[in-house]
């Protein structure tokens, strides 16, 4: 049956609140029962609580499939890159270290690679992927392009990425700022030397019912410095 072409997956990491709902929901999917295939990654755990949900981006030319020696990874006509076909997968792990987004996993005991397949069992019967269904901040959104544009007028979906000299086009889009001079792609490797900005939180110390900072305002958070 496949996935209707007008329905797309949109990821907006800047909206992620790290609640883990997607991680829990993902394991409910029938195509990878009990295994959560979404990666909820801390960007820089020591300095920041920033998290990024990473699902398979379903590349048009999937590196994982190209480097698979067993020819086990197939992209269906609806543009979904499926988990490795179990009779063929030899669990070599090439896909794991080749995927530019760091998505596939290899389960050595079962000798098989698994990855997010956009909840193919659900989507092929008209339902949304589990993670997008439960995401409270809508960092993961599944719907039409018109819907997301109407909901987020300041954002625009982008599905072209750069990794060094390599350009990768994907079925899944990331939400980017809608600016007049917006780039044609998201250069992922440009962030190689970026780190999250360390932030400190300074709160006014309350002594004898009075704050040590004299703030002439009714705002209880006025003295907070971030």
């Amino acid at each position: 049956m496949g996935v209707p072409h007008d329905l797309e997956f949109f990821v907006d990491p800047s909206r992620c609140i790290g609640c883990q709902a997607c991680v829990q929901a993902c394991s409910e999917c029938n195509t990878h029962k009990g295994h959560s295939m979404i990666h909820l990654e801390f960007v820089d755990r020591a300095n920041s609580v920033q998290t990024v949900p990473v699902v398979c981006m379903h590349c048009e030319q999937p590196t994982c499939a190209e480097v698979c020696p067993a020819d086990a990874i197939k992209r269906t006509e609806d543009g979904v890159v499926q988990s490795a076909r179990k009779p063929r997968c030899i669990a070599c792990g090439n896909c794991v270290i080749a995927c530019p987004f760091g998505v596939p996993e290899v389960h050595l005991a079962e000798q098989v690679m698994m990855k997010c397949d956009m909840c193919y069992d659900r989507m092929s019967v008209g339902k949304k992927p589990m993670c997008a269904t439960v995401c409270p901040s809508q960092a993961l959104f599944f719907g039409t392009r018109a819907e997301i544009i109407a909901l987020r007028p300041r954002s625009t979906p982008m599905s072209t990425f750069r990794f060094g000299e390599q350009t990768i086009k994907t079925r899944v889009s990331v939400m980017m700022p809608r600016a007049s001079a917006s780039p044609q792609h998201l250069d992922v490797t440009a962030a190689m030397d970026d780190r999250t900005r360390g932030r400190s939180l300074k709160l006014a110390v309350v002594q004898d019912g009075r704050s040590d900072d004299t703030v002439d305002t009714d705002d209880p958070f006025a003295a907070v410095q971030v």
């Binding site: 990654e41 960007v43 995927c99 760091g102 980017m176």
Partner: peptide, 17 residues
């Protein structure tokens, strides 16, 4: 590494914003 690739994805999008 795959873990850093995932982090880079978030960092790159955050930098764009």
């Amino acid at each position: 590494c795959p873990k850093c690739r995932r982090a880079l994805f978030g960092l790159a999008q955050g930098a764009a914003w």
